[in-house]
Structures are given as structure tokens and as C-alpha cells.
């Protein structure tokens, strides 16, 4: 019986052990640090840079350049699956943040013409990082339960707005440099201590939907929002991502545990693709629950 293989990409943050556990593969984007050569953006920190190193490079004023997944990568990965007689489910980084999903769809239609009867679904997660991760894990679990590709995609379609992101950054500088925030300049002013709360909205944009005074207040606010948005938190994994700020991630975990009992709390780094636009000190909580309203 043919089943389907699940792919994510480099913003999915899933390291090797987790990918093996859920039988998930990824299509790497590419990145380069400063004027160094471009390399595939590995999820395993096996290219000479630890997570910390990437942020040190940013702090030192180096820019990290990133690029969407190359067509050739999709061709190789997808065709490999097709040759194994498997269909493909690619759960992409939000199309508002990366154009990878568009490239994948082009590659997919060519491959589907080449392999009649086979199916490749390129699913726009409308989120990134551990939201994308969580989506892939839930898809893998459905597959393990014996659900078909169509059934899994139908579930994803019906539930895609229930993946919530609550993020705050240490400094607005990085988002501004990268031009990655959808909000008017006036929204921020140019003021110290004002921290935006950034969600992934229904269009998949990083949307700075409100601002809060002070780092501590912003951390407490994302905890509050996450708990408010979560459903059945006792039986889910809550993800905390951090850009080289373990101390703050630990603070978030502690605060979460004060107010709820998540099934599990997974704390992990934010990789260089997203991290280079949000900057060191970014922290984010992902929960599954109510639909994103904005």
C-alpha cells in the first residue's frame, strides 16, 4: 500500500532525532554568513556554526543571507519519494515569509505529470518554526493512525488556523533591518522598552498586533496569550523557541508552569533563517488551540 512521505523545510526547526522519530524529512533552504560561501541550511547545526555562533555573528554585525529552497532540492527530494512509490506532503514555511511553497508547487506539477497517479501536496503552513514543526508532527501522527494523504490534508486545512504563535523580540532593530514586520512605522515609534507582540496572522504574516512596555511585561503577556489560546493544554506539547536566550526561555517555562500543566514543554533554539530576521533575544511560544482571529 502506498503511503506518503512528509517534508518540511529549514524553518521547521526539527533536528535529526526528532525527524527520525516521526519519519519526517526536510528540504533545506540555503544560507550564507557574511561573505562566506552559501550552504544548505541544515537543521542539525553540523556546518561549523552552533545556534549561538549564528547569533554571535549577527551581534558582530554580520548579515545572514537566506534563500528559498532551490527547485533542484525539491526535485530530488520529491522524486525520491515518488520512486519509492510514496506520495508527498510538503508542509512549507508560511508563504508570507518564504516563496519556497510556490517553487515546490511548480516542481510538483511537473513531477505529477511525469508520474501519473502520484500525488504531491504542497501545504502552506501559514506559520514557521515550531508551529510548522507541530503541524508536521500532527500530520505524522495521523499518518501513523492510518489516515490517507487526502484525509491528513483535509485535517490540516480544517485546523491550520489553530496553530498559534506568540512572539516577542528583544529589540525592534532586526525586524526593521529585515523589513519583516507588517506594521506601520508609527506603530512602533522609536522608543526604548516598547516591545511588540508578534503573532502569525491568518495570512501567515508576522503581525505585530500589539505592544507592551518592558521585556518582562512582554514575556508575561505572551504566556498569558498562549494559555488563553491553547485548548486541552494538558494533552499537548507547548513549544518555546528562543534565539540564543536560554535564560528567558527558562523564565517562560517557569511562568507557564505557574499557570497551567502542559502535557509537555519543548524548549529549543530558533534557527538562523528566522532568527536572523528577528534577532537575538527573540522568544516565542507555540500552542495549538483556538483559531487565530487576525
Amino acid at each position: 500500500m502506498s503511503t506518503f512521505e512528509i517534508f518540511i523545510d529549514s524553518t521547521g526547526e526539527m533536528h535529526r532525532a526528532e525527524r527520525e522519530k516521526y519519519d519526517i524529512d526536510y528540504c533545506p533552504m540555503t544560507l550564507s554568513v557574511g561573505d562566506e560561501a552559501e550552504v544548505p541550511a541544515s537543521l542539525d547545526y553540523d556546518q561549523g556554526y552552533t545556534s549561538h555562533d549564528y547569533y554571535e555573528a549577527l551581534r558582530a554585525g554580520k548579515r545572514i543571507f537566506t534563500a528559498q529552497v532551490r527547485d533542484s532540492v525539491f526535485e530530488e527530494k520529491f522524486e525520491g519519494a515518488l520512486k519509492r512509490n510514496n506520495d508527498v506532503l510538503y508542509i512549507s514555511c508560511s508563504s508570507a515569509l518564504s516563496k519556497s511553497v510556490d517553487a515546490a508547487r511548480k516542481v510538483a506539477s511537473a513531477l505529477m505529470a511525469k508520474y501519473p497517479g502520484r500525488k504531491i501536496v504542497c501545504f502552506d503552513s501559514l506559520i514557521a518554526c515550531y508551529g510548522q514543526y507541530d503541524m508536521a508532527v500532527r500530520a505524522a501522527k495521523l499518518r501513523d493512525e492510518g489516515k490517507s494523504l487526502d484525509e491528513t490534508v483535509a485535517w490540516l486545512e480544517a485546523n491550520k488556523y489553530r496553530f498559534n504563535q506568540f512572539c516577542t523580540v528583544e529589540s525592534l532593530k532586526w525586524l526593521k533591518v529585515a523589513g519583516r514586520v507588517k506594521a506601520s512605522a508609527a506603530f512602533f515609534g522609536d522608543i526604548f522598552a516598547v516591545k511588540p507582540i508578534v503573532i502569525s496572522d491568518r495570512a501567515g504574516n508576522n503581525n505585530a498586533f500589539k505592544k507592551v512596555k518592558g521585556r518582562k511585561a512582554s514575556l508575561l503577556e505572551i504566556v498569558r496569550l498562549a494559555v488563553e489560546a491553547a485548548e486541552d493544554i494538558e494533552h499537548q506539547t507547548v513549544y518555546i523557541g528562543h534565539a540564543d536566550d536560554e535564560e528567558t526561555a527558562a523564565f517562560l517555562k517557569e511562568e507557564l508552569l505557574k499557570v497551567c500543566k502542559p502535557g509537555e514543554i519543548y524548549v529549543g533554539p530558533l534557527g538562523p533563517i528566522i532568527g536572523s530576521t528577528t534577532g537575538p533575544g527573540t522568544v516565542v511560544i507555540y500552542v495549538f488551540g483556538k483559531e487565530v482571529a487576525i
Binding site: S184, A186, F187, G189, I191, A193, V194, K211, K213
Partner: peptide
Amino acid sequence: SALGMLDIGD
């Protein structure tokens, strides 16, 4: 304190 939080444009 208020100026930093206002959004006079929108």
C-alpha cells in the same frame, strides 16, 4: 509613556 504606545495615524 503614552506617546510610545499611541498610534495616531491608524
